[in-house]
Design a protein around this nucleic acid. Structure first.
Length: 422
DNA sequence: GTCAATTCACATGAAAGAGACCACGGTCTAGTG
DNA sequence: CTAGACCGTGGTCTCTTTCATGTGAATTGACGA
């Protein structure tokens, strides 16, 4: 009864609507065209943009290239493992090197197959079955999205790979997320592929955000996967500035950015462990804001608003993707946090959640599950949870809300609507 | 006062079930020549 | 005769429950000084 039903979260309409209603659509577009654009080529700020030259990563690129180069002589390169926090250029560099190998290989007509897979992509490579199926598809096999036994897909994949002599480089991005979810068996199977294959050979390059990732790995997998390791350290503020300037030159019209804006952007990002992606996003969103406000120059003020907007969007994106139960739990946490100061504990949330379920006719989950949901909220950065022991009074999570207070009200309202509370 | 045992309130793990989705092969049905 | 509809079986995936085990320090209570 009422189990598993999902409610879409209500997302407030775009601010644009106001302008359109007031002045009319045609006028609005006229104005839009009359505006002098700030952007020249916004692509350069998009996360998947790949610049011609990659800065401050020469050493890492060279290392990767050194390790992978034997592939061109049809030797099997060492498996390699690449670490680094988000926005340190791992994916970018890896892709860059791989592209170059591809280029050379195709010029010389070498039997090299390179597959890049992002394991985080929902519905593509986030389970064992889907990953292997996707790999098999890369070799031109049609694999149904479900319905086949996993071993069968493995077999198809192995057979296809071994049909002719070739060297395969498998780049698995965000591999830590995958292994966290489904265990390391898949890696074990993949690293052992070479023993079964007669003609071909496979080399694996794992890319991970989590520095401690290999700790929980099966020792056999660990040793074979991390034959070589490369660390991508975070950028410092100066390096981020450099990168921002390089991209801004392509992205913006000359003179569109006020003095000091880049520095500020870099400082913001450097605070968050040198995440270049975030710096670029900040600059792009700030630019969009400035453009929407009809400004001729991008100023510091927009950086601040952009920072807020990004956080706001992130929270609402996360929220709208979560099921009702998750929302109910978060709502409970929010209510308690507003009722009184100080940290919240799992038990309190669960109690309130139970009574909330009664009120809304929602089938209540067990505490076990709610505990997991709270852990998920922590992962998503909505709350901050730390497991503490209160001695005689048990062990629990100490939870604080990490959503900016300015958004609290709006989120509560959204959740209330989602949960059909009044 | 000191020290080990106890105890609380959950955390954390493992396994398994429910229900949705899907592929495949076999059977049935209706339409066609 | 054949294409398509309609099953039943067996598979995955996600969310969840059930059962079991783990855990860190405040508290307790026995002990000796």
């Amino acid at each position: 009864m009422g189990r598993g039903e999902k409610a879409k979260i209500y997302i407030p309409p775009f601010r644009l609507e106001k302008i359109m209603v007031e002045k009319g659509l045609a006028d609005y577009f006229e104005q839009f065209l009359a505006k002098k654009p700030l952007f020249k080529d916004k692509k350069a700020l998009q996360p998947n943009y790949s610049p011609d030259t990659i800065r401050h990563r020469d050493a890492q690129m060279k290392q990767i290239a050194d390790i992978l180069a034997p592939i061109l002589r049809e030797d099997k390169p060492s498996n390699i493992f690449i670490y680094g926090k988000t926005g340190t250029g791992k994916t970018l560099c890896t892709k860059h090197v791989v592209e170059n190998i591809k280029h050379v290989a195709s010029q010389r007509d070498l039997p090299i197959k390179i597959i890049y897979l992002n394991c985080k992509l929902k519905k593509i490579a986030d389970t064992e079955y889907r990953l292997i199926a996707q790999l098999a598809r890369e070799f031109g096999k049609a694999i149904p999205p479900t319905g086949l036994p996993t071993d069968e897909v493995y077999n198809i994949f192995f057979r296809t790979v071994d049909e002719k002599k070739q060297t395969i480089l498998l780049v698995l991005d965000e591999i830590d997320q995958l292994i966290n979810k489904i265990g390391d068996e898949i890696l074990y199977n993949l690293t052992r592929m070479n023993e079964t294959l007669k003609k071909s050979q496979v080399c694996i390059a794992g890319v991970s955000n989590n520095l401690m990732f290999t700790e929980h790995l099966d020792p056999r997998v660990k040793s074979s996967l991390s034959e070589e390791e490369i660390l991508f350290p975070p950028y410092n503020a100066l390096q981020i500035q450099n990168i921002l300037r390089q991209r801004a030159k392509v992205a913006f019209q000359p003179g569109a950015i006020e003095e000091g804006v880049i520095e500020k952007c870099a400082a913001y990002a450097a605070k968050e462990h040198g995440d270049a992606r975030r710096a670029l996003q900040l600059l792009r969103v700030a630019g969009e804001l400035a453009e929407r406000e009809n400004l001729t120059k991008l100023t510091m003020k927009q950086i601040d608003s952009a920072d807020r907007k990004i956080e706001h969007d992130r929270v609402f994106d996360v929220l709208s993707a979560q099921p009702t139960q998750f929302q109910a739990t978060l709502y409970s946490a929010l209510v308690i946090s507003q009722k009184r100061k100080g940290p919240i504990f799992t038990g309190e949330i669960y109690d309130l959640y139970r009574s909330l379920c009664q009120k809304t006719n929602l089938a209540p989950l067990t505490q076990r599950r709610v505990s997991d949901i709270i852990a998920e909220m922590d992962m998503l950065g909505l709350i901050n949870a730390k497991v503490i022991s209160k001695g005689r009074y048990g062990r629990t999570r100490e939870i604080t809300i990490s959503i900016p207070p300015s958004m609290n009200h709006q989120i509560r309202k959204t959740l209330e609507e989602g949960l059909a509370l009044s």
